[in-house]
């Protein structure tokens, strides 16, 4: 993968500070994926087969409410990690993710491969579990803070705003990713070229 993709990956908060050997392990296990505008990445309730990094475009995170309608909980942009709980447990996806109004390019790390690395005591896998644990702790703390406030207020508008803030804490992009010096268009071209060369069809 190109220098541009490498640089983008190194900006992902969860992947920051991985040493060259660990980045090499990561790169060896990443598979390119692409989505057309509006295309589903995975549905709520689907088995969690892996996690993704957004390289270009925007992903919407949607949850089905009790009236059957889908509510958008967050939007994920380049540098964001998607679905990383799948690397920890084997439970169904807690929300749906789909490409918004743009095509989306991602890379995928599959759970089966990650498990192999973890069981082989790969320092890369250990570091990722460490990072994910810290990330999950922080999301939970931020969300429960907002929800505690939401339940204390009588103002329905404020309660809704706090619930939305909690949704962003759980499902949104952790950490601001500075990508100003990275050519995202070239990444799109590179990954989609690589993609068609490998002639791999997207699964699930």
């Amino acid at each position: 993968m190109s220098e541009a993709v490498d640089r983008l990956l190194s900006r992902v908060p969860l992947l920051k500070g991985l040493n060259p050997r660990e980045m090499k392990v990561l790169r060896e296990h990443l598979r390119p994926r692409q989505l057309a505008p509006g295309q589903l990445l995975f549905n709520e309730g689907d088995p969690g087969r892996g996690c993704f990094v957004v390289l270009s475009g925007r992903i919407g995170v949607y949850k089905k409410l009790r009236d059957g309608k889908a509510e958008r909980l967050a939007v994920l942009t380049p540098g964001a990690l998607v679905g990383h709980m799948a690397l920890i447990d084997n439970k169904p996806r807690s929300a749906a993710c789909r490409a918004e109004d743009t095509p989306v390019v991602l890379v995928e790390l599959q759970r089966a491969e990650f498990d192999q690395l973890f069981n082989a005591h790969s320092p890369f896998a250990f570091k990722i579990v460490d990072r994910i644990s810290t990330d999950l702790t922080e999301r939970l703390r931020a969300a429960t803070e907002r929800l505690t406030e939401a339940h204390r207020t009588q103002d329905t508008r404020q309660r809704r705003a706090l619930a939305q803030a909690a949704a962003e804490a759980v499902n949104g992009q952790a950490g601001v990713v500075d990508l100003d010096d990275i050519d995202l268009d070239s990444i799109t071209v590179e990954v989609t070229t690589d993609f068609s060369r490998r002639m791999r069809t997207p699964i699930g």
Binding site: I88, D89, A143, L147, V170
Partner: peptide
């Protein structure tokens, strides 16, 4: 490895709690 296996188990608990939280957020936004 002991530390990381324990960490992964603890992270599973966190995932369960995040899912519970997400479900509750859905209820609040309905």
């Amino acid at each position: 490895p002991a530390a990381y296996k324990l960490m992964r188990s603890m992270a599973m608990t966190l995932c369960d709690r995040l899912r519970e939280t997400n479900d509750h957020i859905g209820d609040l936004l309905a």
